[in-house]
Design a protein around this nucleic acid. Structure first.
Lengths: 229, 229
DNA sequence: CAAATATAATAGTATTACTATCATTAATCG
DNA sequence: CGATTAATGATAGTAATACTATTATATTTG
């Protein structure tokens, strides 16, 4: 099976890293390095050393390290959407589709051999720890206009549209979905680092518990049979 | 009426800024400056210029700019808790108490003259834009041990305990509360910058809509009468 | 008033986030 | 196949940042 590549927004990179060897090394190693050091401590210099290249060469692929982060996280949401599509395509009932999406969102992330040079496990930890940093900047509005957040917005819109089908009268579909997409990762972070902020435990069962929590929140909220809907 | 001061965790600062003139200037102006520049562009040098002091002097109050941010945000959550206590103390019904807390969380923040040197409006924008940066660091575990996140955790625990009273069988109280505390600010950010991610609009009514959304999510979820609770 | 303490003034350092230049290697194409 | 073009490497340099250190000068306190 050939390695698939996502078509990501042009503005995320200067040269498409998926199509060259150096580009793939940049993606592959930056995921591991950001995971290891955290985004703050991560620098292009350290990355260059890691892949036996130079800062200048990396700058030919990405304008700066923030764009690289945005790129990786956009990749992640594309991957999520791709998985959601695969696993919901055979499902007819929108409620079941929605559950499948939540299941994919909440499940433990494992290496997906479809995408050779990306370690999805490490990438998921990056999303957990750094997602908010992609849009919490003074440049959001410009970045948004460039379409840098397309991946996340697309997942959000797809799931929200399922909710609109299930209950056309529920007035907070977009808010509910963005809340759930973000809290899914946040709760896992809390389970590892700030346990008093979560009802999940830091054990193997946390992915199932997380799913239950998300299902509960979503289906209770959109359920037309209660006075709040 | 005398100016009140919160007793914040010792580790947040080197010298308590609430008790000296320079300290108060640091708090006052850092709120305005971080709001204006964003935390990334904010530096102690710029702050020093603003208040006609020096970098070195500011470093005698705060170990670094990250601690200053954590301090300001801890102050915010202390203030939230203080307001929640004031407005719930006369209320007996835990459901009503919970609603009051959500109302305070969601309401538009205005300058509170009880605290002379803090502009709560600007501080709220800082919380909206920078809250996550306080704990999304490689140092979380150490910072947590030092108690730097006490303010937020305390608000979370208080509200969660209300939920435990209302429905002792609801198994996700802490997760639900941390989700709601964080999403309240996030949804306001989305309304201003990423409108497709929210069901709120960027108009004056957004605080009421936000409240409705939060009330809906919380009360639907903890409602014992549905199959998910 | 003396002693202690807080602040200001100034200087200095390692690191970061780039930009620029030019040589070298690899890919492509007539 | 050789020539052109493009990609990469090597090296250098810069302004800004996030501090630390030192000394002088105010200010407060006992």
């Amino acid at each position: 099976m050939p390695t698939l590549a996502f078509k990501l927004n042009d503005h995320l990179y200067i040269r498409d890293p998926q199509h060259t060897q150096l580009g793939q090394k940049i993606i592959h190693s930056s995921v591991l390095l950001i995971d290891r050091l955290g985004f703050e401590q991560f620098t292009f210099k350290k990355l260059a050393e890691e892949i036996d290249s130079t800062e200048a060469s990396i700058y030919r692929y990405f304008e700066n390290k923030h764009r690289l982060l945005v790129y990786l996280i956009a990749w992640y949401w594309n991957w999520m959407e791709y998985r959601m599509e695969i696993f919901t395509s055979a499902v007819a009932d929108p409620k079941e589709k929605l559950k499948t999406c939540l299941r994919i969102l909440a499940e433990e992330k494992k290496y997906d051999p479809t995408f050779e040079f990306v370690n999805e496990e490490a990438l998921h930890r990056i999303v957990i720890a750094e997602l908010d940093k992609t849009y919490l900047t003074k440049g959001v509005d410009d970045h948004n206009k460039e379409g840098l957040f397309g991946g996340f917005k697309s997942v959000c819109a797809k799931i929200a549209s399922l909710i609109h089908v299930i209950n056309p009268n529920y007035p907070f579909a977009e808010s509910l979905v963005s809340t759930v997409l973000i809290t899914a990762n946040q709760q896992l972070f809390f389970a590892s680092h700030l346990p008093s902020l979560t009802s999940l435990e830091a054990n193997e069962n946390r992915y199932n518990r997380l799913y239950s929590f998300l299902e509960n929140v979503v289906f209770c909220s959109i359920n037309a049979d209660n006075k709040y809907a």
